[in-house]
Design a protein around this nucleic acid. Structure first.
Length: 192
DNA sequence: GCGACAG
DNA sequence: ATCTTGTCGC
């Protein structure tokens, strides 16, 4: 079990999850040196990010391993949004493996929208993380998809939940739960 | 002006 | 992300 304190804020996911991911990579290198990953699929974005540096970039720099950002939803950045035009483009993806580039208002290609599986109309948002091209990233992600979610990410998800299911969170030292009361709520409303 | 916006 | 009831299809 690993305590995580930073809250989730869109655009700042790395500050919440990267420390734990780096720790996991280091443990793997130390405890299983014969299992050295050549690339990491990251549950989140890479260049497709408000500051062009999402979790996949962050983790890549800190581990010096090639990283690919794989998001299940579009993060609104550089004019990109889930508007009708975008939905129409997603609908145009018919067969598995079909994709189209995500070009922001700046004109830069920030990632690719990929239909990863024939049975799912919901696409994946693939972007460069570290030391890998966008083309290679899309090819690798597609090759890993037995279902919509790439198997490495899917298995990490399934197994971590399974672990948490039987190892309930232990209370964190020095962190006291504060129930929401009318009084405490009043203190957060700093007006005037 | 407010809300939308990876997990 | 999480919770939750039912439904559809192979």
């Amino acid at each position: 079990m690993v305590p995580v304190t930073a809250p989730y804020v869109a655009g700042f996911l790395a500050f919440r999850e990267v420390p734990v991911l780096v720790e996991a990579v280091q443990r793997l290198q130390q405890e299983e040196p014969q299992l050295q990953p050549q690339v990491l699929l990251v549950d989140g974005n890479g260049l497709l990010h408000p500051r062009g540096f999402g979790t996949a970039c962050h983790l890549g720099v800190l581990t010096d391993l090639p990283c690919i950002g794989v998001a299940k939803n579009l993060l609104h950045v550089d004019g990109l949004a889930r508007d009708e035009l975008h939905r129409e483009q997603v609908r145009s993806l018919q067969r598995s493996g079909e994709a189209f580039p995500l070009t922001g208002t700046s004109g830069k290609v920030l990632g690719m929208v990929l239909r990863s599986h024939s049975n799912s109309s919901r696409p994946l948002y693939v972007s460069v993380g570290h030391r890998v091209s966008l083309g290679t990233a899309v090819r690798l992600v597609r090759a890993c998809c037995r279902f919509r979610i790439p198997e490495p990410i899917r298995q990490a998800d399934i197994r971590s939940r399974e672990y948490l299911r039987r190892q309930p969170c232990a209370p964190v030292e020095g962190l006291e739960a504060v129930p929401a009361s009318p009084e405490s709520k009043k203190e957060t409303e700093l007006e005037d």
